[in-house]
């Protein structure tokens, strides 16, 4: 039983990181209706900046720099590229971001070269004992940070002008624009916040128990896609719940792989997608997503 408990705790803490990434997907989708394939490379960029600057600057300033650079990169993608094709359809927008992703990943892979960079995070490889199961300290911090981020985002949405503008733009862009909300500015800020969240997730993803910053880290962002879909595409609580579910499902299927061999090897790769398909079969708009209403 302690194994199950440990796996679930591990899963929840991993899920917290997925939640951060999924929140970014939701943010960008709500504001600009884009499926952002470049999210992973923004995440990698953030981690990379921290990796190359933490020796000179120290961890915390490097972290700040990484977050700022990732946020700026996301804003630049939106302003320079996506803004020009706002009216294009979903497939076109997604493929545009894919082109950007190819460019960024190629350059970052080349720069990373043969070395594994590390973030130099102060939590190192320490672990925390929670009721007899040990959890990496970095993951505990990730869970706390996610909780704080969700709280802050919620407050921003409820109580600030930016939040109201954001919600109005997501609900009905045309009307919002007529009310004097600058859609482009809202969109750029959403991309920026998503980029910053990706950078934070990137730091945790490249901390212990992962070895460091490698080009494949960007791919992990894709693992958050089932979390995003599961929660419903436009729901912040959905992204968090989806992230946690996918985290737990992943660690459980990895941990109990030995007992589930009849389902095939390396089960943890598919279970998130299987769960996602099941949920979509029952609830086509995900757990918390807005139901699509057909308008005539």
């Amino acid at each position: 039983m302690s194994n199950l408990f440990g796996l679930v705790l591990n899963g929840l803490s991993l899920g917290a990181i997925y939640a951060l990434i999924a929140l970014g997907f939701v943010m960008i989708f709500k504001a600009t209706h884009v499926l952002n394939f470049a999210h992973g490379s923004v995440l990698l960029l953030g981690a990379y900046v921290v990796g190359v600057t933490n020796d000179a600057l120290g961890f915390w300033p490097a972290l700040l720099l990484g977050i700022v650079v990732a946020a700026l990169a996301a804003v630049v993608i939106d302003v320079v590229i996506m803004r020009r094709v706002r009216a294009a359809d979903l497939g076109t927008l997604a493929i545009l971001t894919l082109g950007v992703d190819v460019l960024m990943v190629t350059e970052l892979t080349r720069r990373l070269g043969t070395a594994t960079l590390t973030t130099g995070a102060p939590w190192g490889t320490s672990t925390v004992d929670v009721l007899g199961s040990s959890i990496p300290l970095s993951r505990v911090i990730a869970a706390l940070v996610t909780a704080v981020v969700v709280g802050v985002l919620w407050a921003l949405f409820q109580f600030t002008n930016w939040g109201i503008a954001m919600r109005a733009a997501a609900a009905d862009g045309g009307t919002a624009e007529l009310m004097g909300i600058r859609l482009n500015r809202v969109a750029a800020s959403a991309w920026g916040v998503a980029g910053a969240l990706a950078a934070v997730a990137g730091i945790f993803l490249t901390s212990f128990p992962s070895p460091g910053i490698s080009p494949t880290v960007g791919l992990v962002a894709l693992a958050a896609i089932p979390a995003w879909v599961l929660g419903g595409f436009d729901s912040f609580p959905g992204a968090v719940v989806g992230g946690l579910i996918i985290g737990v499902v992943t660690t459980l299927s990895a941990g109990y792989q030995g007992d589930l061999t009849f389902l095939g090897r390396d089960l943890a790769q598919v279970t998130p997608y299987a769960v996602m398909l099941l949920v979509l079969l029952i609830r086509p708009s995900g757990l918390f997503g807005t139901k699509e209403v057909a308008r005539v």
């Binding site: 989708f29 209706h33 499926l35 979903l90 497939g91 997604a94 896609i225 089932p226 995003w228 879909v229 595409f233 095939g264 090897r265 390396d266 089960l267 790769q269 598919v270 997608y273 299987a274 996602m276 398909l277 979509l280 079969l281 086509p284 708009s285 995900g286 699509e292």
Partner: peptide, 27 residues
């Protein structure tokens, strides 16, 4: 599934098929 979903919902649901399919191909 494809009949009930639209747009991006269907796009990402069908993404699940690719992973399931590859899992079957491997196993």
């Amino acid at each position: 599934i494809s009949g009930r979903l639209r747009g991006i919902y269907l796009g990402l649901a069908s993404l699940g098929l690719v992973f399931l399919g590859q899992h079957i191909l491997f196993n």
